[in-house]
Structure formats: structure tokens, C-alpha cells
Amino acid sequence: MIERRRFLAGMAAACGASVLPALALGNNSASPDVRILTATDVHVKDYPTVAAVQWIGKQLEQETGGRLRLRVYHSGQLGRESEAIDMARFGAIDITRVYSGALNNAFPLTQALSLPYVFDSVPHLRAALDGKVGAAVLQGFEKRDLVGLAIYDCGARCFYNVRRPIHTPADMHGLKFRVPASDIFMRMIRLLGGNPTPLAYGEVFSALQTHLIDGAENNLRSFHSSRQFEAAHYWSQTEHSYSPDVLLISRRSLESLSKRDQALLLDISRASVAVMRKLWDESEATARQELIAANVRMNDCDLGAFRQAVAPLLADYHRDPAIEALYREIRSLA
């Protein structure tokens, strides 16, 4: 862990130097005509977002005759999402996939995608992301040295824990739940009666095992791929958020490409959304069956009670004109 942090710190310190690509990519032996971009993800190698980015790499290589390539570091090899965001902003890495909840505080328009009970279903979410809402959120990254390439939807987020089934907010009282570093999620947990505990995604499994936390919230595919179900045996279908993932590229990295290559990367990235969705739908169904076979106890919830409990949170965000405009557009598609 210490060595990895030293490596990341060295990469960040080198951002202003031309030696960074060689340091980060190990590209010393490559032809000077070949450009290798780095991409990071905290998820495992067969996770749909990782596979979609790998697909982008294959398409880039094919379309450019090998001149543009993509090297994907999965499973958090280059650090946490918060570290990846900063390194992409400063050009230490090129591309990163980040959960939008971790972006809420720094990029306010992502809040509209993370608020509780804004979306009714996956088709509703996808309709919004494919239209004006998705375009506005992606454009909002440009103010802070990043460019939004695509938004990957990732199903409904639900609660899971080591203690008991959750049917209503009353069942959450006194339990400690991991949340991302997002004001929305921290307040949401408090309104539902739980105690929010901000933790990095990679620390959740051990925190569940040691009872540092009692539970967490995430989509079913991540619950399965992270093996967190081995510690937390109760899954409650609260569907409290459909907060998606965002694929980002460093503005510096994008602008270092020719205009033609920039357009190609953007087009391929947009096309990768359909690839990711197909993989997501297939793997989510498989994950659900495997969780049932592993004796994870799954239950439905009183969604009306959960909506009522978080209503004050939504009311506060309605006062923000930019968020309210996106919210109205989202609800018009319901």
C-alpha cells in the first residue's frame, strides 16, 4: 500500500513533465508514432464497465491501425476513485471510470442523477442519460479539467447488511452504513435512521467482516463481484438510487490528440454505452441467481415509506435552479 501511494504521488508530481507518459505507461519501447492511453477502474477485470473500456481500446486500435491504444488498469491497481479523479484532472492518467456519487460534491450537476427516488426504473434512467440530461451532466465536467466521455448506468442501488432484513426505514435505525463521500448519501442515511460512515469502495468488505460497519448500499452486480455477500447476507430491494457511473478523460490528454483522433475517441466512447448495457443486463441476471444460490436473503421493501423519509432531502435540492431543471426533465420522461 505504501509503495503504491509513493508511485501515485510520483506520477502526480510528474504531471507537468514530459516524462509522465513513459513513467505511467511503460511506453519507452513503443514506436514514437504509437500513443498508449491509460484507463483505470476499481472494479474487477470482468466487470461490465471494465469490459466496455477494453472494447473502446480494441476499437481505437483497429480504427487507427494500432497507432492509438488503451491500457486498462482494473481492480483499483492505480488507486481509489478519489485518487483517480485527481490524477485525471492533472493528466497523470488519461481515462477513469468513476461512480457519480463520488463526484457529487465537486461536480454539482451529478447530484441530479444521485438523488433518491428520482428514477423509476432502468429504462427511465437510460432514457434520461441518452437525452438532454446526460448531455448536460457530461458538459458540466469541462469546468474542472475533465471531459465526460460517456455515462454507464448500473442498475438500482439497494441496502445490504450483516444484521437483519430491512423492510422499512425503522429497520435501519442504529445501523452503520458505508456511503461514498457524498453529502446526498450521508444525509439520506441519516433521514432513514442509519449512521453514515464514509469509506472507499475497496475497504467495504473488511469493514463488514470486522463490524466496523453493519451494511452498505450498492447495485447488485457490485455486491456480487466484490464478494461482499460473503459477509453481508441480507439484501433489501430499496431501489433508493440509480446513481450511474461516468467515464472521464483528462482534458489535457484529449487535447493532446489530433482533432480527428479526439472525434474518434468520443464517438467510440459513446458507442461503448450499448456494449456496457448488454454486458450489464446479462451479468446482473447471472449474479442474482448466484446470490440466491449462496443463500443471500433477499426481500422487497415498503418503497412508499422510504420515499416519504427522504422527501426533505429532495425538497432542499429543488431550490437549486440547475438541479431543479434537470429533475423536471428527468421526471418528464417517467
Rank of each mutant, 00 (worst) to 15 (best):
Y160D: 04
H167G: 10
L199C: 06
F205G: 00
H211D: 13
D171P: 13
L175F: 09
G194Q: 08
I166K: 00
E203V: 08
S182T: 06
D183Q: 12
T197S: 11
D183W: 01
P198I: 13
H167E: 11
A181S: 13
G202M: 06
F185Q: 14
R190M: 12
H167V: 14
F159K: 02
A200L: 13
R190E: 15
P165K: 04
P165E: 04
L199A: 10
R164A: 13
M188G: 03
L175T: 13
L199H: 04
A181W: 10
Y201R: 12
Y160S: 07
A181V: 10
A181F: 12
E203P: 02
R178F: 05
G202N: 13
V204L: 00
I166Q: 01
L192W: 10
K176A: 08
F177M: 13
L175H: 10
R178G: 09
N161S: 13
V162D: 00
G193E: 05
F185K: 09
K176E: 06
M186S: 14
E203W: 12
M172Q: 02
F177E: 02
D183A: 14
P196K: 01
L199P: 04
G194R: 02
M172D: 00
I189Q: 07
P180H: 08
F205Q: 05
H211K: 15
D171V: 03
A200D: 15
S206P: 00
F159L: 13
R187I: 03
P198V: 10
T168W: 03
R190F: 06
R163V: 14
L192M: 10
P196D: 03
K176D: 06
R164M: 07
L192T: 09
F205I: 00
I184T: 01
R164L: 09
H167F: 12
A207N: 01
G194A: 11
G193N: 03
D171Q: 08
N161L: 07
P169Y: 11
F205Y: 12
F177V: 01
